[in-house]
Design a protein around this nucleic acid. Structure first.
Length: 133
DNA sequence: AGTGAGCGC
């Protein structure tokens, strides 16, 4: 017959403490590497120059731009930073993400691919699209 | 509106 200890062992090894690691490796954000970073959470007074300054601390910044409304000219509170290499972009994320800038916590991540090829007003080739990412 | 998630003209 089964001893009391035997039953207990069976119980604890099967039911409760066996596999708690099932729903852990399912959601993979898997960021797509890019030299361009998307910076959000910016103070509306933060300018492209200030963003460039901050980003330059962590790598060679090719270009930095805070997005502003074309008509009003005011900042939308986010922007983009392009580094020379992806490795530097990664350093840029580690250096800028979750940090304070002008009193606001900013977020840095890889930017998505920009506006699709201009089907509207492209009279010439768009060969210089790669330089604008 | 400089008022708070987001992906750039």
């Amino acid at each position: 017959m089964a001893t009391r200890a035997g039953l207990l062992k069976r119980f604890f090894s099967t039911s409760m403490f066996s596999s708690q690691t099932t729903a852990a490796a399912n959601a993979k954000p898997a960021p797509i590497p890019s030299t361009t970073l998307f910076i959000s959470g910016l103070n509306k007074r933060t300018t492209s120059e200030k963003l460039n300054e901050e980003a330059s601390k962590f790598g060679e910044v090719v270009h930095a731009r805070v997005v502003t409304d074309r008509s009003s000219g005011y900042s939308k509170g986010f922007g983009f930073v392009k580094y020379a290499t992806i490795a530097q972009a990664e350093q840029g994320i580690k250096g800028l993400d979750a940090q304070f800038l002008d009193g606001w916590v900013i977020f840095a991540e890889f930017a998505r691919s920009r506006t699709p090829p201009g089907y509207l007003a492209s009279t010439e080739k768009n060969t210089h699209q790669a330089e604008m990412d």
